[in-house]
């Protein structure tokens, strides 16, 4: 038997030496990890389960078809659901083209040696971390400057939410563009394509799955957002279907906020039911984003 095998044997038989994965230190750390994960998961689980139990009785057709009312039994979230759809669609139309265009400029065309572009980049990163209520204030100030009296407009809410998610879309799009291999750009340029053609016909199409994933995640954030819209007069009693960009509106998160503040127990049940709806919609959006990421993203 060689020396090497001798050593290996003695090593593997030696269980008294507490080293590696089984040392007390490692075990404590492992337990700590489990505990923290357990705490995080339990809080979330309790929240979801209690919301479901509380809201289940009112999770019926009336929630979707009825208008808000002072009688809880006849109240529903129909205008809030429609309002959310209006606001989010408008936000998507405003923010996605703008965000993608900004990202393309920064990633593909901007001269990266210039100080101004570094500054812009730093700014975009910082903007993504700014509290949403600040964007509400910004939109409010803009509307005041424009002398708009009634600020409860779909287009105003969508503008605030667009500003909020613009940095997120820019960052996601840049990531997606960066993951397109340089070889593809080089091949296109070597054939005599212009940089603009290369961007439109090769880089951008290859980045679409990544951009779509980022955009949907950003929109789902805007969907659940209430703070900026509260500042813009979103907390109103809307008893009609919003029907245009200049229409008044309320959204699902604001409706939930509204109902939670009411004294009657029935309204709180209603709020829980609307929360379930919001939760399901958000989960669906995030699931769609994950699906797109997994099924359409190219592995180079």
């Amino acid at each position: 038997m060689s020396i090497a095998t001798d050593l290996r044997l003695s090593r593997s038989l030696d269980t008294s030496a507490r080293s590696g994965e089984r040392s007390p230190k490692a075990m404590v750390f492992l337990v700590l990890l489990w505990v923290t994960m357990f705490i995080a998961m339990t809080v979330l689980l309790v929240l979801i389960v209690t919301t479901f139990i509380e809201g289940a009785p009112r999770l019926d057709l009336r929630l979707f078809t009825e208008y808000p009312s002072s009688t809880p039994a006849r109240a529903g979230a129909r205008p809030a659901i429609l309002g959310s759809i209006w606001v989010i669609c408008t936000t998507a139309v405003l923010a996605i083209p703008l965000g993608v265009a900004a990202a393309v400029q920064l990633e593909e065309f901007a001269d990266k040696t210039k100080r101004i572009n570094h500054l812009i980049e730093l700014n975009v990163q910082n903007l993504a971390a700014i509290p949403s209520v600040v964007y509400g204030l910004l939109a409010l100030a803009m509307l005041t400057l424009l002398r708009v009296q009634n600020k409860n407009l779909v287009i105003a809410g969508a503008t605030a939410l667009s500003l909020l998610i613009l940095p997120v879309i820019i960052i996601a799009t840049r990531e997606a563009l960066r993951s397109v291999p340089a070889e593809i750009r080089e091949a296109s340029l070597a054939l005599g394509a212009t940089p603009l053609q290369t961007m439109w016909k090769q880089t951008l199409p290859s980045a679409v799955p990544g951009i779509a994933t980022g955009a949907i995640l950003a929109l789902s954030r805007a969907f659940g957002e209430a703070a900026p819209l509260l500042l813009l007069g979103g907390l109103v009693f809307v008893s009609y279907d919003p029907n245009g960009l200049l229409s008044g509106y309320t959204t699902l998160p604001i409706q939930i906020f509204n109902w939670t503040g009411r004294p009657q127990e029935e309204f709180r049940v209603l709020a829980a039911a609307a929360s379930i709806l919001l939760l399901v919609l958000l989960l669906a959006m995030n699931a769609l984003a994950i699906y797109i990421r997994n099924h359409y993203q190219r592995r180079w």
């Binding site: 291999p181 070889e183 593809i184 080089e186 091949a187 070597a190 054939l191 005599g192």
Partner: peptide, 14 residues
């Protein structure tokens, strides 16, 4: 570049 074509090290089809 149109008149002087290039083939790269790694096959890079679109």
């Amino acid at each position: 570049r149109r008149r002087i074509g290039m083939v790269f090290q790694k096959p890079n089809p679109f």
